[in-house]
Simulated scan of single mutants.
Amino acid sequence: MRILVSTSELAEALVSARPPVVLDVRWALGGPPGRESYLAGHVPGAVFVDLDKDLAAEPGAGGRHPLPAPEDLQSVLRAAGVSSDSSVVVYDGNNGSIAARAWWLLRWAGHRDVSVLDGGYAAWESEGREVTTDVPEPEPGDFQVQPGHMPTIDADGAARLAKDGVLLDARAPERFRGEVEPVDPRPGHIPGAVNAPFTGHLNADGRWLPAAELAERFRALGVHADSEVGAYCGSGVTASSVVLALEAAGITDPDKPAVLYPGSWSEWSSDPSRPAATTG
């Protein structure tokens, strides 16, 4: 499957001889809990996966959403029915920023056949497509997590990339500038980083921009095919959508993706020795 799939493509795949594993990863900062939304209605056959419990380790020194332990992620994916030969489609509420975290983790774990539903559940529901409250009991999968297939950097690596390459900050402009900080210890951004809000990847309806428009946006931000590029955000979640967008734009490719700083600002800002810029 392609990196982004449409609602019509997913609907067709669901009635095929071998339908994909569908993961519902709806989540919102401050709630309501994603499971409540899932139980109220979801794509037929979709399995709910919780961002906080399933797609991240416990908050701590590594930030608010550290990468899960490989064995924990493997248990979650197998319980959801993911096998080594499964096609997987992930969706969130609308903009793909949370679904991109699951996409990135699956790719990091060594699974290549994974896509994000363009427009998410909002697009699916708005088109009057079938929804259900039935909770499936999938046959356990056999997928073996082999971490490290997507590149990551730590705080020192992020500092170097901001100086020598292009480090994109996926947060809203006011958080990047340090005007507000609703969650993390200090306001601001990593010195030298470039603001690239994840919402800029999207049309007004929540669907992703065409590849050519994404590429133009990244070029305007100083990213080119030969750039060393990476991304961070508040806790390493929405930055995954920047990694996805760079690949969807054709600037990076599956064999050489952009790097992710998983700890992101939640880790960086908790260390008082790390500088914080509040301009730009």
Rank of each mutant, 00 (worst) to 15 (best):
E58N: 02
R64W: 04
L67A: 08
A56I: 12
A69R: 09
P68N: 02
V76R: 13
G62L: 15
V89A: 10
P66G: 03
R78T: 11
S87N: 14
P68A: 05
A57T: 11
P70S: 07
Q74P: 02
D85M: 01
P59D: 06
L55C: 09
E58Y: 02
S75Q: 15
L67N: 07
R78K: 13
V89H: 04
P68S: 02
S87V: 09
G63C: 13
A79W: 01
A56N: 11
E71G: 00
A61R: 15
Q74K: 02
V88H: 04
S86F: 00
Q74A: 11
D54K: 08
A56K: 09
A57E: 14
P68G: 03
P66V: 01
A61Q: 12
A56L: 13
A57S: 15
L55F: 07
S87L: 12
S84I: 01
V89K: 04
D52L: 12
L55T: 12
S75R: 15
L55P: 11
D72A: 15
R78C: 09
A80S: 10
L67C: 04
V88L: 06
D52F: 13
G60W: 08
V76E: 07
A57Q: 10
R78M: 04
R64S: 06
G63M: 12
S86C: 01
G63W: 10
V89E: 09
H65E: 12
S84R: 13
P59C: 08
A61W: 04
K53P: 00
G63A: 11
K53I: 01
A61I: 08
G60I: 06
R78Y: 08
D54T: 10
S83W: 03
S84E: 14
E71Q: 12
S84G: 10
R64G: 13
S75E: 15
D85A: 13
P70T: 08
L73D: 10
K53D: 15
